[in-house]
């Protein structure tokens, strides 16, 4: 298993170099898709999946250890919980400040920007939360499926 793996993948200089050059641009594009979702097609799901695909590409071209150097399992779990907590936290805070659950206009009492601007900004916060959760869950699914649960040695 081990030597087939070492000869079959990860040893090609062209693939390694091009992936190393490509990954920052893919991550930048993912962040652009999340942030620019108000004005163009895109949003939390799509940007999160693109951000996750950058790590999956790293794990395919190098090996799983390399991708876990850039995003450890602990950081992955942190991002998963952070995304869900951002989403539910925004809803809960807007409920605490006098509105309904997920009624962003109530956040105007916290920072006065104007209720309609808070609608726009609340959608942005929620999309960031969705993006974090989707990114880390996609990476986690790929790690588990490609190593069949051991998380230490991939395809």
């Amino acid at each position: 298993m081990r030597d087939i793996y070492e000869h079959s993948a990860g040893e090609d200089l062209i693939i390694k170099t091009s992936v190393r050059l490509l990954v920052p641009f893919i991550q930048l594009f993912g962040l652009y898709v999340i942030v620019h979702g108000h004005y163009s097609p895109g949003g939390g799901f799509q940007g999160g999946v693109i951000l996750g695909a950058a790590f999956i590409l790293l794990a395919l071209a190098y090996d799983m250890k390399t991708s876990q150097e850039y995003m450890t399992i602990r950081v992955n779990a942190l991002f998963t919980n952070l995304g869900a907590a951002i989403f539910i936290g925004v809803g809960a805070v807007s409920a605490i400040f006098g509105g309904l659950f997920l009624d962003y206009a109530a956040l105007n009492k916290l920072i006065p920007l104007g209720p309609i601007e808070w609608h726009s900004f609340g959608i942005f916060l929620v999309e960031v939360g969705v993006g974090f959760t989707v990114m880390s869950i996609m990476v986690l699914l790929y790690w588990n499926l490609s190593s069949s649960g051991t998380l230490d040695e991939g395809l």
Binding site: F45, V134, I137, L141, N144, L145, S148, G149
Partner: peptide, 16 residues
């Protein structure tokens, strides 16, 4: 669609 891909992931885990 996004729920569908997570269902696919769980199903593939059960298959493995």
């Amino acid at each position: 669609i996004v729920v569908g891909v997570s269902v696919t992931g769980v199903a593939l885990a059960v298959l493995q």
